[in-house]
Design a protein around this nucleic acid. Structure first.
Lengths: 250, 250
DNA sequence: CCAAAAGTGTTGAAATTACACCCATGT
DNA sequence: ACATGGGTGTAATTTCAACACTTTTGG
């Protein structure tokens, strides 16, 4: 294939030629605004949170909304989401995955506009607090979420459903924790995701049995007097097991 | 909200006004062609098949391709897929689900165009053979698939992966079988999906244990001399169990 | 010394796997 | 009568769920 810059140029000339020659099979069709909205999860001190922001401009000024952007001609949908995510949180290389497309004809009362929802899992201590504040963004616990603009509340519901089903068989939970985390923290994350208490003996047995956690020397003494050992996620080992087809059902 | 027909009209006038008044927050953004492509699964005599068609017009004339369409301003993506699916197979009310968005900037060398893949499961004896033939469409067994246009081969891979993971915990297999089917047929379908032999005693025990199959009086005598009892899927019972949170892992 | 969280094993129940023979019938 | 695919049960193994006490240490 060719480079993006060239492609754009090439496409433009090609298009003009085609229109002039009256045989543009594309120009018969409709073009649509394509946007992406990010459902940004964070995990903070035992509670699952969502990053939303209060709109400062029309349309929907003053209402809460997910963080989103229109997709430009020369960027992929993921790139668009990464762009806006970095703009607002300062973070790069965040875990992000397509959720689904929101495309009801009347979802946006202004114009026909579809949005691809993408959910992101971020380590809540890493983000740039000043940037977030500057953009009117706020972390809301899931059980205190305000009403969101358009179909954004539905996006959040769908993303949570996805997170639940995904976390069950893939260790994506680690994306929400600091690089070094303790088993009690990990358990508390799973309890927050599934909204139920788990048995610590069974939980430990299970997660350690996968063999993708590396126990560190260091202890976290913040949450208890005894202190809990830190662990880190062994990415190489994980990839190896995935290619061998192991499944990680929690 | 308002009706589709009106909406289109309203949007158009609104847009013109906004452009004239120079305060259209949308018009700053890019519009993109939005298409949808259908990955159409069928199950025929023990083999999983895919419906593809040979393009008769440019671009990509003569190459095999999935069945797809551009999405119009006044239709949802699903509606667009349903439209083209009915056009080519004559079928309505087909099981169809969004797969993911294909949106690489250079995926279509003509114009920037994203495509939402949707996979459909159809009962292979119900479709309109004349229509399919007229549109140059052909059922291909999965292990004999020709190379497809653009990123369509990747769509097929993704759809198969999805079908596999989905069929494991939701009884969507029934969508691929006639309304009345036998347990050997059902097993053969699962064997085709997962590409491995299963034990018939264990398989029967499992699927019958869910209690969503109704045994009929009638037997299918086509595939054996003894004949196998027909079953049908109990949709109400299934819905009831789903709402009770039962899981159907096969 | 005590409160608070971390860490650790066992047992019974349930689910899963492996495995082999008889049945019905059309030819 | 026999070849072909349909149908059935049991025992061994593995996995899962339930359950309670000891350890460490900062205050």
């Amino acid at each position: 294939m060719f480079k993006v810059g060239l492609a754009t140029f090439e496409n433009t000339t090609k298009r003009i030629n085609s229109i002039i020659m009256g045989k543009d099979s594309y120009s018969l069709h409709d073009k649509i605004y394509v946007a992406t909205d990010c459902i940004i999860f964070g995990f903070d001190d035992g509670v699952l949170k969502l990053l939303v922001f209060k709109r400062t401009i029309e349309p929907h000024k003053g209402i809460f909304s997910l963080i989103g952007s229109f997709v430009k001609l020369n960027e992929s949908i993921k790139t668009a989401a990464e762009r806006v995510l970095e703009e607002i949180t300062g973070l790069k290389n965040v875990f992000m995955e397509e959720l689904k497309t929101y495309n009801a004809v009347d979802r946006d009362p202004g114009y026909r506009c579809i949005s691809i929802g993408q959910y992101a899992l971020i380590k809540i201590n890493d983000y740039d607090k000043d940037l977030v504040e500057k953009h009117n963004a706020i972390w809301y616990p899931f059980d205190e979420l305000p009403e969101l603009v358009l179909d954004h509340s539905q996006m959040v519901i769908d993303a949570l459903t996805r997170l639940r089903s995904k976390a069950r068989y893939q260790p994506i939970g680690f994306e929400l924790l600091p690089t070094k985390f303790t088993l009690p923290q990990l358990q508390s994350l799973y309890e927050a995701i599934y909204q139920k208490k788990m048995d610590s003996r069974n939980f430990r047995k299970k997660v350690l049995s996968f063999g993708v956690l590396i126990k560190l020397e260091e202890k976290d003494k913040l949450n208890s007097k005894k202190g809990a050992f830190f662990y880190k996620f062994d990415h190489e080992k994980y990839e190896e097991l995935v290619t061998r087809g192991i499944n990680f059902e929690v």
